[in-house]
Amino acid sequence: MKLISKIISYSVRLTLLCSFAAGSLALVYMKTLPMIEYQKKKEEIEFGRKKVLPQASIFKEEENYVAGYNEKNEIVGKIITSNIRGYGGNIRLMVGMDNENKIIGVKILEQYETPGVGDQILDKKFLSQFENKDETDINFRKDGGKIDAITGATISSKALLKGVQEVFKYVKE
């Protein structure tokens, strides 16, 4: 009947068009996916940098560190990424310092500490201790500094502390 053949004809045409459209979209999606992932990573890094050195709005990658400039193009500090052996694996941390080598912020990029125990080093409360501290403050209280370790996670705390101390050592060079 005429109506049925119309319906079939229309359905076939639409299905053909849809398949073609969906196919080309799938192609475009696959081709742009790597670039999109790259942009996402870039944004995360940018975000992390802003957190450890909020005074800076422009970041320039130097040989072994990242320099931070404000809007007037004055250097306000630097960001150093360092690695230290933790309890469960490598800890990669990012430390932001101002021009007088005072710590502005610390951010952990990668760690493999024990969940619920060692990974408490990720806690804001622990990391914020490092803010606004000079080199002499970066020691546990029992050693004359101003940092409290996490009870029950001494090894991880020590590792992070050492990581920050290493940054100071590096900066002196």
Partner: peptide, 21 residues
């Protein structure tokens, strides 16, 4: 429907290209 399918295909392409670049 045909217009919509064609147009939305181009729009999606532009969407993802802008997202990437």
């Amino acid at each position: 429907p045909v217009f919509i399918i064609i147009i939305s295909t181009f729009v999606t392409i532009v969407d993802y290209v802008i997202r990437a670049y």
